[in-house]
Design a protein around this nucleic acid. Structure first.
Lengths: 196, 196, 196, 196
DNA sequence: AATGAATGAGCCTTCATTCAT
DNA sequence: TATGAATGAAGGCTCATTCAT
């Protein structure tokens, strides 16, 4: 009695299980068998739906990025003022929903092994370019043109650094603190809010 | 083939080969066999000198950290002015010698798999604390006490972020650019150099 | 190749191959590869079905004990007279089917390496206790209570000793001779059969 | 400054360490390195003095047998009466000094792996024959000729069985109990001591 | 659509042995 | 006489993948 339309359901189940597994067990313990077990599905299904272990991991990273982009889009939607736009973008990077230890760790476990995921780097580069482009257009109205590149580079590095700190529980950097730091930095860069 | 006193020589050879291998092949391709082959030594020697693969990787991370600490110490030695001290520390993080793609990638390959290296996290935490302590004492004379924590947190995240960018050739962040960014940031934080 | 329900078949095949291998090649030559080869199965299947080499050996010892217990049960079933019950138990220990060089050697190869099979000792102790309990209730009606313990201890040691001799082809102790010896001993202990 | 006459000293040290190791770690953990470490000697010395790991184990078994034979000889020396001679032999098998857990376990660890010690079986057979011969000449004066073989076979099996039990701490068979059992058995076989 | 049986390559590790000193 | 450096084979185990059902 083959059911139809299972594909999206199964794919979601497996990706969720992969995220869980990456978080809980780390990259190299994230095996097809373990992912299957977590999803209460057989290991054979992974290849059925993702061709490959590689395929599963790529799909997982895509999903992680998508969730993050979603946060950016949502926040940008309700921002009009240039400065607000900038805050929207940076805040989105540390959105409570996405900046959970689980997602950060899963993302980072993949990130830390890009070497073994051929084809993903290009894909990741695209994501980075989009962020840079978003940041650039948000920053441009706020600082002298000559400083745009520097400000954007700094912001991007700072964002990545805060993510990285987020994987180390010992660092004490959670979403709230990350937003605080990045807001402080943004303010110091674009000048104090002259609300007078 | 001398019989005695080979230990330090072999250990260095194997650690160097590990760094090479991590850079060239990535974490999970860094196997005992491959490291041995790179060092022109038999795989059995790894266990002879490091007990374990784990032991080898720990020793490698230690070595990487040591080299980095060395750079910091060297630069601090010739800095007296508070602002100079701060620059010395941050510049040291991107010292030409240490911030080579090879070392950065090796370091990061280990970093991205801390999960699988039990016991290393504690060790890494110590290293982080030392950096924080160095930065704090350098920053304190330069900014109001209430801002010290924020400034240090930001600096540490920015440093990590720049390292991370350094692993992606596509990001265009090399040692020079990294130092430029961090100097710009430091200046903006502690106020412009009033050399007038 | 059917897809389902292979477990019991494969398990039996692998256990049989293990017994063969222990007999023919000895304990430390009984490797997962060799067992697999004997069973015409891949080495990976061992872990699939037994988790471990250890698991395979434990299962094998269990099987050997089960076969032996089976012989005891069968013989006891057709014995009513107390003396017959005692003979039934002791004879069962040297049942032609179980006391083959193959099984004895396999059993002994395991036995001689209990050190390396953590957790098995307890299991083996249970088996021993059952035998002791069986013997005790068979002996009790036949000798003065004060002698029961001594008689049982002696019987158990003698049984083990005969098994041990059974592993040495040079000893000339086969099933028939073993039964002869133990019957002679039993008779001398419980008094001659007064069939007059 | 090469010392002369070290051979017997070193050989003894290494054999003692082997016995310890067999007892404490079991057969397959008894490696040349571990034995060397226990003896505070380098692993290379083992091959120097024993050619081989095999050579070391053979020498160890020889030593164990020698110690046991020594006990027999000592006890036989002071026995004149036929029955005393028999008791001397059987008691010697469970001499407090030899029937220690350490020696029993070491002996048994070797015994349980005779398969892997080519050439030892022959050697062990000799030892068995000598025991049989000793027992036979002690038994002959005490029982009808027709029963000698049976009595000796039983005795030999019982002795081995008691040794075997001695390796299992759970069995509760120590030297004292073993002697008690074997004496009881001997008495029942050769008839009660008619000291009237 | 789904299962789980089966394979075989590859990894880490252990170890007996050899050998230069 | 003694050391310990060095090798390389083999073992146990994990795992991605294939495939019959």
């Amino acid at each position: 009695m083959p059911k139809v339309g299972m594909a999206p359901i199964r794919r979601k189940q497996l990706i969720d299980a992969t995220i869980e597994c990456l978080h809980a067990e780390g990259y190299h313990r994230t095996t097809i068998n373990r992912v299957g077990r977590r999803a209460h599905l057989s290991p054979g299904l992974v290849t059925h739906y993702f061709e490959d272990k590689h395929g599963l991991l790529v799909a997982t990273l895509r999903e992680l990025n998508k969730r993050l982009s979603g946060a950016t889009a949502r926040r940008l939607a309700s921002a009009t003022d240039p400065r607000d736009r900038l805050h929207a973008i940076t805040d989105a990077q540390f959105d409570e929903e996405q900046f959970s230890p689980q997602l950060v760790n899963a993302w980072f476990a993949l990130w830390g092994n890009l070497h073994e995921l051929p084809g993903i780097q290009r894909f990741q580069t695209i994501y980075e370019k989009r962020l840079r482009s978003n940041l650039t257009s948000a920053v441009r109205p706020l600082v002298p043109e000559a400083r745009v590149a520097m400000v954007v580079d700094t912001l991007m590095a700072l964002i990545d650094g805060l993510w990285l700190k987020g994987t180390l529980s010992a660092s004490g950097i959670n979403g709230e603190r990350a937003r605080e730091i990045i807001r402080d930095h943004v303010n110091s860069v674009v000048g104090p809010l002259d609300d007078a």
